[in-house]
Simulated assay, not measured.
Amino acid sequence: MKKSINVLFIILCILIGLYPFIYFFIDRKFGLLSSKNSELLANDLWNIAFYSHIILGGIALLIGWVQFNKHIRSNRLYLHKLLGKAYIISALISGITGIYIALFATGGIIASLGFIILGVIWMYTTSKAYLNAIQGKIYKHQILMYYSYSVCFAAVTLRIWLPILSALLGDFIIAYRIVAWLCWIPNLVVAHYLINVIKLDKTTSTVIKN
Rank of each mutant, 00 (worst) to 15 (best):
I5N: 05
I5M: 11
N6C: 09
I11S: 10
I14P: 09
I16H: 02
G17V: 09
G17L: 08
I22P: 10
Y23G: 14
F24D: 11
F24S: 12
F25Y: 15
F25M: 15
D27N: 15
R28K: 15
K29P: 01
N37Y: 05
L41G: 05
N43V: 07
N43E: 08
D44N: 13
A49W: 05
H53N: 10
I54K: 02
L56N: 02
I59F: 03
A60L: 01
I63M: 02
I63T: 04
I63W: 01
G64K: 01
W65L: 08
N69H: 04
R73M: 07
R73W: 04
N75C: 07
H80I: 03
K81E: 05
L83C: 03
L83H: 01
K85P: 03
A86I: 15
I88D: 10
I88K: 02
I89W: 05
S90A: 11
A91P: 09
I96V: 15
G98D: 09
I101Y: 01
I101Q: 00
T106G: 03
T106E: 14
A111T: 06
A111G: 07
M123V: 14
Y124H: 00
S127W: 14
L131N: 08
G136T: 04
Y139S: 01
Y139F: 12
H141F: 03
I143P: 01
I143G: 00
Y149V: 06
Y149G: 03
V151H: 00
C152H: 00
F153L: 10
A155T: 09
T157L: 04
L158T: 12
R159L: 04
L169P: 10
G170N: 11
I173D: 06
I173L: 13
I174M: 11
I178A: 07
W181P: 10
L182G: 13
W184R: 05
I185P: 07
I185G: 06
P186M: 07
I195M: 04
N196P: 08
T203D: 14
